[in-house]
Amino acid sequence: MTSGSIFAVFDPAGPYAGSITTLAWVLIAMFVAVLAVVIAALWIALRGSGRLKARLGGTRAIWIGGIGFPVVVLTALLVYGLTLTRHLTAPMPQDAMRVRITGEMWWWRVAYLDPSGRPFMLDANELHIPAGRPVLLELESNDVIHSFWVPRLSGKLDMVPGRRNTLPIQADGPGVFAGQCAEYCGGPHALMGFVVIAHEPAAFDRMMAARRAPRPVPDERGRQLFRSTGCAACHRIAGTEANGMAGPDLTHVGSRRSLGAGILPNNRGTLAGWIGDSQAIKPGNRMPPYKTLSAADLQALAAYLEARK
């Protein structure tokens, strides 16, 4: 699900990732140029004529090549790099959208924030943003150090317990962008993926308005099962009595593109498989297997969750 090109870092989709990619190409070009100079010097030292060897070994060559060249080039690079990436730490517009993302073992808690910084909508493992607008992420952790990384939208930034780091992201156009925890955080760290979905701004506003509207939950059987089988102890579904906060918020789970933190496609089948035995899929994750559910109950729960749009 979170696959895609391993060269995503060279395929930026927004300004924050773009400047980092530009800097990376400049560094690669410099590496190639310096390597060429070193190889040339090596060739002269081994095979060159006596006159060239003498020049290469002289004091002047050391002053120019060993001190002057690095000082000039590295200073220029420092100035260029800081100028190029200045916007990464520049203050965001006051009205910029803010989202708090909290690293958990091994998933992501997502809270959309109002202008005063209070959460008004909870979600997990996926982030919806408007295309063409900067979004400020507040990155935190509830347990160990994680690292937030959506290579096509931004650089990576650690989520450190007890700290709040901020990271701007922006997608220039609509699209789906894969992310991945980039700091080893134990057990199923490699299966801790993330998905960012960028929408046209109008479509984004419509989606958020629809999500904020009151949501009737007509499926009484699913709702009962969700409570009686214990799901509600860890998972919240807004508009119902299910209010557990230990695991991912499932209010909108049916509209997600992925399950298990960006790792499985999301459909009724994978929902049933995850509920039945998520340990076989993501060993070590904190959800226990529910192998005692009857076929009918498992079907009903999967259908109930699939309808939580």
């Binding site: 496609p265 089948g269 994978t270 039945g276 076989a280």
Partner: peptide
């Protein structure tokens, strides 16, 4: 792979996931 059959089944030739629900 696209439908995620491996969420429930061990499928020959598929290294991950190897679900146990089915």
């Amino acid at each position: 792979v696209r439908a995620g059959c491996g969420a429930c089944h061990v499928v020959p030739g598929l290294r991950w996931p190897q679900g146990q629900s089915g």
